[in-house]
């Protein structure tokens, strides 16, 4: 169902919005670090009960990725790149 992917898209858009508010320089290393952390975080928070599909980040019973966390992080970095410095 489309309701499983739209949170990730909203998270991405919000990420871009708030990414434009960052002032310090973000190096490539820092971006990679943040994305890795967000994937680890997404595993910890898990897929939500109802996102029982591959879009929602379902991997196997009891294990899933919280996709909005990852897309939000990517969005923030893209937003920062768009704004430039």
């Amino acid at each position: 169902m489309i309701g499983e992917i739209s949170p990730s898209i909203i998270a991405f858009i919000l990420g871009i919005l708030f990414g434009t508010q960052l002032a310090h320089k973000i190096t490539g290393r820092m971006a990679a670090l943040v994305i890795i952390f967000s994937i680890v975080g997404a595993l910890l928070f898990g897929a939500f009960t109802f996102t029982y599909s591959i879009y929602g980040g379902y991997i196997m019973p009891g294990l899933g990725l919280s996709m909005p966390l990852i897309t939000a992080t990517i969005g923030i970095i893209i937003g920062k790149l768009l704004k430039g410095e």
């Binding site: 949170p7 998270a11 919000l14 990420g15 939500f48 909005p68 966390l69 939000a72 923030i76």
Partner: peptide, 10 residues
């Protein structure tokens, strides 16, 4: 920031 965004989308 991204945690906050995740919370609102959920």
């Amino acid at each position: 920031f991204s945690y906050g965004i995740m919370v609102v989308t959920a």
